[in-house]
């Protein structure tokens, strides 16, 4: 992997696997927490907002680490992330004007 220049191949391998396992732990932990909250917290807008927030945390780790995007060139990162602004626009537009 690109972020391990001064390491021997064996060390780089160990570091990469450790990183993968850390991210696995985060994803599993957040999912388990969501699951626990679904049964302990009363349903409502507040809980839904927390669920959406946790979903974006998981999405960040999958895209950044598993899909390796955070180690790519900046212009590639931007050309993938910036178009998603249109989705935000659509959601905001529907939330504000969807009732008409």
């Amino acid at each position: 992997m690109a972020h391990s220049e001064n390491l021997t191949p064996e060390q780089a391998h160990k570091a990469a696997v450790k990183r993968i396992l850390t991210v696995t732990g985060i994803l599993a932990g957040v999912t388990a927490l969501e699951f626990a909250m679904a049964f302990t917290m009363p349903a409502g807008m507040g809980r839904n907002m927390i669920f959406v927030l946790m979903t974006f945390v998981k999405a960040f780790y999958i895209v950044a680490e598993f899909m390796h995007l955070r180690y790519e060139v900046k212009v590639l990162v931007l050309s993938i992330i910036l178009p998603c602004v249109f989705l935000v626009w659509l959601v905001v537009a529907l939330l504000l004007e969807g009732a008409y």
Binding site: T55, K58, F66
Partner: peptide
Amino acid sequence: DLVWVFVFT
């Protein structure tokens, strides 16, 4: 997997 995270929520 990413899509499923969103579908799940």
